[in-house]
């Protein structure tokens, strides 16, 4: 249904707004590390956590684009920049053809971006105000964004969206408090709150990682339902099994960089980058016989901090295949066909 994940920066730059909804070019997000004045004077230059360190990708209209990686990869920071919770340090973000990276976050509401772009958070327990009834929680964005003119109109919209997220009968759920709902029901409320504004683009950050397994699929199906109604997603996760269930294209992040990308099915079934291979082979499989036979690719140690990422390929200190060149220069992104690309020296002739 969707074409290639790999586009190449040149081609990416030429992409028109008919082809994508969101386009990110060379995005950087660095956080300064706080130090004492004395430390700063002695050591001189500023230090940064390079959470996102030069990534580019495009999300097509109606697509569920997965950004996957482990903690510290920069995936959540990327999501926060795209919904306007963080300003980018450098790089350009095009939304529907408009360069929004230069627009101040305080102006997002004025031009309607706050309504068009929404986020669903991981934790259904912390995200909802315990003192507010469900109806008020969901109505709040409608009122803040002046989408409705009366309280009654807001309530009507709330009841309709509750029905859509299958919290039925809606009249019953609307007047409850979050603590009266189960974890799965609360996550439905989070989805409803994001969807009530009829957004075009939703960043879903680990939306099911805290939901019980028996109901996880129903939340994922809810995301797919809204996709069919026209919503485009950035789906952020560490879980490649759910990524495969919902996603179209995927980009794998490691220490602030994208190391591999392509159609989800291809990347997950034929991972190429040593990091992706390690990640995929570490995922437990609900099949005891297969689990016993499977071979794991192990990386040395654990992910380093993003303050001083390794030179060259960022994985090289942990990679069992590291060559001389890997510690010296950064590998280019290589197209390996079928929309699948990998940034690893094993794949480039040099």
């Amino acid at each position: 249904m969707y074409r290639a994940g790999y586009i190449g920066l040149e081609r990416l730059e030429r992409m028109t707004k008919e082809e994508y909804l969101v386009k990110v070019e060379n995005l950087y997000k660095w956080f300064p590390v706080r130090r004492s004045i004395i430390e700063a004077i002695i050591k001189g230059e500023k230090i940064y956590v390079k959470a996102v360190d030069g990534i580019s990708f495009a999300i097509r209209r109606g697509e569920i684009f997965v950004l996957a990686g482990e903690s510290g990869s920069g995936k959540t920071t990327t999501g926060k920049v795209l919904v306007g919770l963080e300003e980018p340090t450098r790089g350009r973000i095009f939304y529907d053809g408009m360069d929004i990276s230069r627009i101040k976050l305080s102006d997002w509401k004025k031009i309607g971006l706050r309504r068009k772009i929404q986020m669903i958070f991981q934790d259904p327990y912390e995200g909802l105000n315990p003192r507010q009834k469900i109806v008020d929680i969901i109505a709040e964005p409608l009122i803040v964004n002046r989408v409705v003119s009366s309280k009654r109109e807001a309530e009507e919209k709330v009841l309709k969206i509750l029905e859509e997220v299958k919290l039925t009968p809606p009249e019953e759920f609307a007047y409850r408090y979050p603590h009266q709902l189960s974890g799965g029901q609360r996550q439905r409320v989070s989805v409803a709150r994001a969807m009530v504004l009829e957004p075009e683009f939703v960043v879903a950050d680990e939306p099911v990682s805290m939901v019980d397994a028996s109901i996880r699929a129903s939340i994922l199906d809810l995301l797919i339902y809204f996709r069919e109604k026209g919503v485009t997603y950035l789906y952020i996760t560490h879980d490649l099994a759910t990524a495969r269930y919902v996603g179209d294209n995927i980009a794998i992040m490691y220490l602030g960089k994208i190391v591999e990308r392509g159609p989800v099915e291809k990347v997950v079934s034929e991972p190429q980058h040593p990091y992706t291979r390690a990640l995929v082979s570490s995922i437990p499989v609900p099949d005891p016989k297969y689990a016993k036979e499977k071979k794991r690719l192990e990386l040395r140690g654990e992910i380093p901090t993003a303050v001083n990422p390794p030179r060259g390929c960022r994985l090289h200190p942990r990679c069992p295949f590291a060559m001389d060149i890997c510690s010296k220069s950064e590998p280019p992104e290589v197209d390996i066909g079928g929309g699948h690309s990998v940034s690893c020296w094993l794949y480039s002739r040099s």
């Binding site: 699929a217 490649l240 099994a241 269930y245 099915e265 079934s269 995929v280 499989v285 609900p286 099949d287």
Partner: peptide
């Protein structure tokens, strides 16, 4: 209800 990253993609 549990997805897997291997084998045929099944409807959950």
């Amino acid at each position: 209800a549990v997805p897997s990253h291997i084998g045929p993609k099944k409807k959950l």
